[in-house]
Design a protein around this nucleic acid. Structure first.
Lengths: 194, 194
DNA sequence: TCTATTACACTCACTAGTCGGTATACATAT
DNA sequence: ATATGTATACCGACTAGTGAGTGTAATAGA
């Protein structure tokens, strides 16, 4: 438990993050992650029972940072909740320009593990998405929208749609379209709530 | 090229469809597909140069049938283009209740091959999505919407969002929410175009 | 003879997971 | 102080199996 530099477990998780996100879960071997973390495989298996648990750990480690980033983008944006929501989409679009961007890790993991619906990593991903939806609902409720949950659901659909379409087309423009659509939905809802 | 029953190539493609879609691309071996098609691996490699080409063939074989199905659902629905569009979403939701439903094969393949952006199978998937978007644009233009392309783009974002969220949550309700959102977008656009 | 198919052994790299053992730290008992 | 016990953290080498793709020889039909 020494705090000097990084713990072995964190180094393994960092390597898992980089490789699982960058290459895909089934495309990356446990050996590759052990190598990248500069540990032997035996040590990796000391900290994680199985590859499946490592996958779960990888997604769990992205949960909070990801939500925090979205909240930060939202808070940093000027204007109404419509503008703040659109800002998240535009930021996603900016990020998608980086060559290392490979879509949403939670969605991609669910896609890869579609044949194992009960997999713990998929549960972590689903919980993450639910948290994001709940967070949006709160914001919209606080802003006085009459149907905060319905609006939040429309927005998460657009967001996951943006992740997917940007990935398949390799075209960040879809983030702009999704953000514009999101803004229009919220603006209309704001007018109706007046 | 005998039309009696099914050609060997079609049997291989059918097996690839079933296994790649059901289990995932990297989770399924060439041997497994050969076995399911009741062909030797040698025969499979007579018809396809590599696993990558087989993956491409699998997606290519789903392109037209998938588009035709969506068009059929659209045409069969009563009402305005708003209702017809919503109907596609509701049908997707119904299909998602089947235990064998595993999301959108094109999207899942793009997710699995995110580390190989130039992969021919990803290109086939992207082209498929573009065709769907173009088909929607035509329909909206024919119905007299002033911004058919923008509306079509919003709809495909919702559609791919629905595929993704239904898959991660295993909850077809998201199809209803996406369909309702789609309808509202088009209705507003119809009002504006009057 | 050309196309399509089978049988099946084979290569070679890779894969998840394990065996047995070591170094260190920090107790408690002597 | 020294020996002993116990838990943590780590490693090199290994197993048993799977992966994509090939080599070769033989066969059935047009």
């Amino acid at each position: 438990m020494s705090q000097t530099a990084k713990s072995t477990k964190d180094r393994i998780l960092d390597a898992a993050n980089k490789l699982f996100y960058g290459e895909g879960i089934r495309a990356v071997s446990v050996d590759a992650i052990a190598d990248a973390a500069k540990v032997t495989k035996r040590t990796l298996y000391y900290h994680f029972e199985s590859k499946d648990q490592l996958i779960e750990g990888y997604l769990a480690s992205r949960d909070q940072p990801n939500l925090a980033l979205f909240a930060q983008w939202f808070d940093a944006a000027e204007g109404s909740i419509a503008e703040k929501t659109a800002a998240i989409f535009y930021r996603v679009g900016e990020n998608a320009r980086h060559p290392k961007w490979k879509g949403c890790g939670f969605l991609r993991t669910a896609a890869e593990l579609a044949n194992m619906p009960g997999h713990p990593a998929v549960a972590v991903g689903a919980a993450h998405k639910k948290k994001f939806e709940a967070w949006l609902t709160e914001r919209y409720a606080a802003a006085g929208l009459t149907n905060p949950a319905a609006v939040a659901r429309s927005i998460v659909l657009l967001m996951d749609g943006a992740f997917s379409t940007i990935l398949i087309h390799r075209d960040p423009e879809y983030a702009i379209a999704a953000g514009d659509t999101a803004r229009a939905i919220i603006v209309r809802e704001m007018d109706a709530s007046e």
